[in-house]
Amino acid sequence: MPEVWILGGTGRSGRVIATELLRRNITPTLVGRDAVRLRKAAEELPGEVRTAVAESVDASATQIRRRTPAVVINTIGPFVTTAEPIVRACLPATHYIDLANDVATATRLLLLQDEVRAAGPTVVTASGFGATATESLVVKLCENRPTPRYVRVDMIPSLEIEVGPLGEALAASMTEGLPGVPGGRRFGGRCYRDGRLSPMRLASEPRTLSLPDGSRVTSVGVPLGELVAAQRASGATSVVSGSTELPSSPVMRAIVPLAAQLMAIKPLRTFATRRLAAVEIKPRPRPREHSWAHAVVEWADGSTRTGWLRAEDAQAFTGTVPAEVTRRLLAGEGRPGVHFPAALFGPSLAEDCGGTYLV
């Protein structure tokens, strides 16, 4: 039986992914630093689960090279630090999937394109709710159409929050999520202009959206992984990505860019990471029944298409995508190289993960 490893297997994402793998009759191996937590997580899952202890990213990479599992699913942030060494450890025999959703990780992995293609495995990045849902919608809207000139995508997640500390990995993902990438300041916003990553003020270009369920939300510009995914899926020279997860009031839209620039000061960034990691998260129900992705695509002749993708809990969708991608990779449906999920498997992937298109 092919081995499927989940790095960070005791975390919420790891446990949800493991459950979805079991539903597809795939036995997961939970990989983490603490043997006791691994055993406890394995006992709570609805099926046979293996465990493996790896105390660091380097230790995980060493074990991957030695044991060559069929698929490795990376849930450990910050992905800008963990993704590349794990991908390199997977070459040449192991497929790789991650939940990264930042521009830096996407652009760095795409630089490995030739190397990964020559080696032969499939690398699938940004396999969570935001990038997969918005990219899938863009692929759907652009089917059988010429290359558009402009795309805007917005993600509107809805998820139940578990009680517990935020944790080091997630805190680091938040503070390191806007590192230096081409096209602007180290911790500044990004969009695509003339086909290139270009500066854009964080939390700018607010857009109030009327959801299909009748509620209204405001999304503001933020450079997440879906920005790169949408550009590559559409080929558009002008692309903006937005999210409802950033504050959208006029005052906060003025503060966010200034606060982001402070993160460029390493001692402040380190301090913020430590404080965030210790924050105790209070449980919270889903703010709305569904999660949504929204996209507007515009062509040179002025024609436009607009659409929505409806999903349930965003965390559940994030767990389902890597499991479904794994099933398809084990079935031989992958291709050598670095890919985003919908560009590799088409818009049917989101539907098989519980999404519904409203185009």
Rank of each mutant, 00 (worst) to 15 (best):
W5T: 05
I6Y: 04
T10V: 15
G11I: 13
S13H: 13
S13R: 08
G14E: 09
A18V: 05
T19Q: 09
L22F: 05
R24N: 11
N25T: 11
T27L: 15
P28C: 05
P28H: 02
L30F: 01
V31F: 05
G32W: 04
V36Q: 14
V36R: 15
L38T: 00
K40Q: 15
K40F: 12
A41R: 00
E44H: 13
P46W: 08
E48W: 01
T51S: 01
E55N: 07
S56F: 09
D58C: 07
R66K: 15
T68E: 13
P69M: 09
P69D: 08
A70R: 00
V71L: 11
T75Q: 00
I76T: 04
F79L: 13
V87R: 02
R88E: 15
A93P: 08
N101W: 05
V103Q: 06
A119P: 03
V124Y: 01
T125Y: 05
T125N: 05
G128I: 08
A131V: 14
A133D: 09
S136P: 03
S136Q: 03
V138T: 08
V139R: 06
N144Q: 09
N144P: 00
R145H: 10
P146S: 03
R152K: 09
S158T: 00
E160V: 04
P165K: 14
E168C: 06
G177Q: 03
P179V: 11
V181F: 03
D194A: 13
D194R: 08
L197Y: 08
P199Y: 12
R201G: 11
A203V: 13
P212S: 12
S215A: 13
R216K: 14
T218V: 06
S219C: 10
L224A: 05
L224M: 10
Q231L: 11
A233I: 10
G235S: 08
V240K: 04
V240N: 05
V256I: 09
P257Q: 13
Q261D: 15
M263V: 10
R269M: 07
R274T: 06
R275K: 10
V279R: 07
R284D: 08
R286F: 07
P287V: 01
E289I: 12
E289P: 03
H290T: 07
A295I: 06
A295K: 02
V296G: 05
V296K: 06
V297P: 02
W299P: 11
W308E: 13
E312Q: 14
A316E: 14
A316T: 13
T318W: 04
T320K: 02
E324H: 02
E324D: 08
L329D: 09
H339K: 01
F340V: 06
A343R: 09
G346I: 12
P347S: 03
G354R: 01
